[in-house]
Design a protein around this nucleic acid. Structure first.
Lengths: 227, 227
DNA sequence: TCTTTTCGAGAGCACTGCTCTCGTTTCGAC
DNA sequence: GTCGAAACGAGAGCAGTGCTCTCGAAAAGA
């Protein structure tokens, strides 16, 4: 069935791709907030109502763009890893940080789409979690495969946290001590939080430009992880 | 002049307040994205066009709400500080963290408004920077006034970073070593980034609920600062 | 060949932010 | 007290939005 496709199916696939492509263009230039279905249709020379044959709603189109963005970010991470195959784990860690920031600065609206304020009433469908996990998994992989220096223990996890950390470790990095997992999540929050701060202008007037602070933070997190 | 005001000026002040109040109500219930000038006017029983006598545009109304939100957050921080006047600096630090998270969870749309994705083409006017600085200044104050344990030096700041850090220290916390300032900014990014992650559902399925991870992060940042 | 499904287009609905105009009300100077 | 200027509220209207419904044409499968 998938080998030979009808002309209609091929046309549908192609048009779906074209719609997404044009939507991405608009997303990059005006942001998700201003992305207009009618404008996409206008640019493609079709009636706006025809667009609904391909995407049942604006949110559905945005979801497709979210998945694309996650995958692009994941590709950037994989590419950074592939380029540092032989490097020290610490350098691979920093390469992942730099690649993430570079991608975010090149695609600020895409970054905001996936890590920014979600549309109210919008719940990310299951299909997004796998591409969303690619970058965090890449970061975890570097830590998991590296010989870690011993680090000071730090504050002990309390309450439900130890269980959450061991569950996380069991799922993605068996054998990693809980306090390292906690610092890994911390680093993940820092990575995205810092890029968000920079992109949204919350560092203007203090740490601006943020290049050197970013590399310092990458090194700092590598230190606390024992990389 | 401000002692005796004309009836018109008083009416204007009151209506301005009422508009902002109703807008806040809508902001809290549907978010900034869905905040509608017409709905505000409708709720107030006035024509939508009349609203433009008080706020020249929707963005201007949002700016007023942003300032309100920053000030409420600043009030929450001040209140937390006032309630821990005699406590150890480390506990005051953690109290500020908790107060910030509590406020954010109680007012998620307000949090998103100030720390989330900014409206495209919107540049925060100067009037917002002073209320925006209240929480960071409260955090800095705790660190500045505390006797700090010596901490391991960590990675050395490079490039433009040392200058930015000393400038920041000179402006807000004279005498604070640069590496402590850097960790302070890091903690600030973590605080807001972590709350954003929690609020926007990026921790669902991994660290969820985030209560204990949050207190652990607060303690962890206090440790690295030497509190 | 005939029926069923798919498709594109157009009209239309209920919204939105914002502008302009038009009477009315209020204020301040004379 | 009077009168001109400023401020005000309401209404109509513009250009735009997401989305629905209907209708005729085209393609697909029996």
């Amino acid at each position: 069935m998938p080998a030979i496709r009808t002309a209609r199916a091929r046309a549908r696939e192609e048009l779906t791709r074209e719609i997404k492509q044009e939507a991405r263009r608009q997303l990059a230039s005006v942001g998700a907030q201003q992305l207009s279905l009618r404008a996409v249709a206008r640019e493609l020379g079709m009636a706006s109502s025809a667009l609904y044959r391909y995407f049942p709603s604006r949110d559905e189109l945005l979801t497709a763009l979210i998945i694309d963005a996650y995958n692009e970010l994941g590709d950037a991470a994989d590419h950074a890893l592939a380029g540092t195959e032989q490097a020290a784990p610490r350098d691979r860690w920093c390469a992942l940080w730099t690649a993430t920031r570079d991608w975010a600065r090149a695609n600020p609206h895409e970054f905001a789409l996936v890590f920014g304020t979600p549309v109210p009433g919008y719940a990310a469908p299951r299909t997004t979690v796998e591409p969303a996990a690619r970058l965090p998994l890449a970061l975890i992989g570097v830590v998991r495969d590296a010989p870690l220096r011993p680090t000071p223990p730090g504050p002990p996890p309390q309450g439900a946290l130890p269980g959450q950390l061991t569950a996380l470790a069991a799922a993605f990095a068996p054998g990693l001590p809980p306090h390292v997992v906690a610092r890994g999540v911390s680093a993940w929050v820092q990575l995205i939080g810092l890029i968000g701060f920079e992109l949204h202008g919350h560092l203007v007037g203090s740490i601006d430009p943020a290049d050197d602070f970013f590399t310092w933070t990458a090194a700092q997190t590598a230190d606390t992880l024992g990389l």
